[in-house]
Deep mutational scan, measured.
Amino acid sequence: GKMTGIVKWFNADKGFGFITPDDGSKDVFVHFSAIQNDGYKSSDEGQKVSFTIESGAKGPAAGNVTSL
């Protein structure tokens, strides 16, 4: 299901970062391709987002990331 969290950091040059879930669980990796914004796929530190957890090649990753 959908979770909410805060972007801990995001490196636009490398195209990835981490989200800290609101439920206190482990930080989740986020790749720019998962960000659902139109246009520039980046996110700012401290941005509140909703997301799903997908199982990626390197473990859990955020999917369907949407700014709230």
Rank of each mutant, 00 (worst) to 15 (best):
G1C: 14
G1D: 12
K2L: 12
K2A: 09
M3N: 06
T4F: 07
T4W: 07
T4A: 03
G5M: 04
G5L: 06
I6T: 13
V7T: 01
V7K: 00
K8I: 08
W9R: 00
N11E: 04
A12G: 08
A12D: 08
A12Q: 12
D13G: 10
D13T: 13
K14T: 06
G15Q: 03
G15S: 04
G15D: 02
G15I: 05
F16K: 00
F16V: 03
F16L: 02
G17R: 00
G17S: 01
F18I: 05
F18L: 04
I19C: 06
I19E: 00
T20V: 11
T20M: 10
P21E: 00
D22P: 00
D22K: 01
D22M: 07
G24Q: 04
G24A: 03
G24C: 08
S25Q: 06
S25A: 06
K26R: 12
K26S: 11
D27C: 09
D27Q: 05
V28W: 03
V28G: 00
F29H: 03
F29M: 03
F29Q: 01
F29R: 00
F29P: 00
F29L: 03
V30T: 01
V30S: 02
F32M: 10
F32P: 02
S33Y: 05
S33R: 05
A34F: 04
I35V: 07
I35W: 15
I35S: 02
Q36P: 06
Q36R: 08
Q36G: 09
Q36M: 13
N37K: 12
D38T: 12
D38R: 08
G39E: 09
G39R: 09
Y40Q: 09
Y40F: 14
K41I: 12
K41L: 14
S42E: 09
S42P: 11
S42W: 15
S43K: 10
D44E: 15
G46T: 07
G46Q: 08
Q47W: 15
Q47G: 09
K48Y: 10
V49C: 06
V49G: 01
S50V: 08
S50M: 09
S50P: 01
S50H: 07
S50D: 03
F51M: 02
I53D: 02
I53R: 04
E54D: 08
G56L: 06
A57Y: 12
A57Q: 10
A57M: 12
K58G: 09
K58W: 15
G59V: 03
P60K: 07
A61T: 14
A61H: 14
A62M: 01
A62T: 02
A62E: 02
A62R: 01
G63P: 01
G63I: 14
N64C: 12
V65A: 03
V65M: 05
V65N: 01
T66D: 05
T66C: 10
S67Q: 12
S67P: 14
S67M: 15
S67H: 14
L68K: 03
L68D: 06
